[in-house]
Design a protein around this nucleic acid. Sequence first.
DNA 1: TGTATTTTTGACCGTATGGTTAAACCATAT
DNA 2: ATATGGTTTAACCATACGGTCAAAAATACA
Lengths: 209, 209
Amino acid sequence: MTDNDRLTEEKIFEAATEVFVDKGMDGARMQDIAIQAGINKSLLHYYFRTKDHLFNAVFEMTCRKLLRKFAPVFDENLSLEEKIRFFFREHITFLQENPKLPAFIMNEINRNPDRIKKLIKNIDIEKKWLELFEQHRAELEKYNITKESLPQVIISFAAISVFPFAAKGILEVFLEKTGTGFNRFIEERKSFAADFMIQAITHNTDTGK
Amino acid sequence: MTDNDRLTEEKIFEAATEVFVDKGMDGARMQDIAIQAGINKSLLHYYFRTKDHLFNAVFEMTCRKLLRKFAPVFDENLSLEEKIRFFFREHITFLQENPKLPAFIMNEINRNPDRIKKLIKNIDIEKKWLELFEQHRAELEKYNITKESLPQVIISFAAISVFPFAAKGILEVFLEKTGTGFNRFIEERKSFAADFMIQAITHNTDTGK
DNA sequence: TGTATTTTTGACCGTATGGTTAAACCATAT
DNA sequence: ATATGGTTTAACCATACGGTCAAAAATACA
């Protein structure tokens, strides 16, 4: 009973995730989610009262899933360079398996910024960044990266990794024309991005601020 | 007549752009566009037959507006480094004035990839990139950037510039916590991005492929 | 001024959609 | 076997939405 119960709830949740990620909150239809889950539309309302409730549940879970992938960068005991290679390899591989997540999350956040604020509120990012800074203080100082410029650097890392997926629809067209397919581009990006960004910071000593 | 005619059509177009960029195709309501334009809903259908027609017109114009901003990179007669500084300064300034464009365009393209294909089909990107490559062959070869890795490099440039706006909703929350506001972050990014990326490529000589 | 043409409006239509409700179904406990 | 409780369904509701249409208003033309 509770067993079957959990099963249907999961079935609904998975179907909803698929449809929402694909169509977005506004484009998704409760009917489509029901069909996708192989159940009656009323059941959606039985388990998750409204479309909003269902969406919020899906959105929250999806955000957590993506944010969690950033954790090792802060936790693992690796050198800066190792962390960078680790980050791009793991993060891009994750996005390969979930290519639509970035566009979905970004879009919904821009559509309704308040939603994310509640989610992130609990994460003390300032503390995490400071920890990261202390962990690699020696290396970072050598590369002239200050506490002030750290956000610029970190966001650049995210950009290099996430952007190709967020802009997938455009890049596919461009890349097709150059002979490289999107998949091969991404595969090559794992190491390219790491090399590129390591170069960007390791020779960054002559940039006064 | 034709004068007033053009006026209402423009009024509609501007209102539609605002609403579509803000809410997306699915989230936008014809009624809202009419109100925004200060006219009757039927007039929308008189000038642009359907919501699809209106959206396509808006979307196409918006894409052109953004793509046009990339042109100087290919045309202007500047050194590579000058081009890079020029690109980030101009491009980020443009996005400052139109911060919602990246998210809008990316989202709609991912939602309906065929739309962009018709738009880009005419642009011979392969040729443009080759031209760019030839223009700066000496510098690029010195930096070990090949025809094959050029897409990786160019897309990285786009990422560094566009991503902060696409992810604005998230970054605002993070940046608020670190004391820097989004606006200041962007202002600083114009020069940071240029410095950062120039470093990334100019010392890129030891990366075998 | 009167007539034809174009622009603008308000009322209306059919349908899609999120949501409700009452009844059917089904497992379990007595 | 049957009463009880949660689960699932079909039928239904109200509303929102894109779109149409005929008439009014404005404009051009004679």
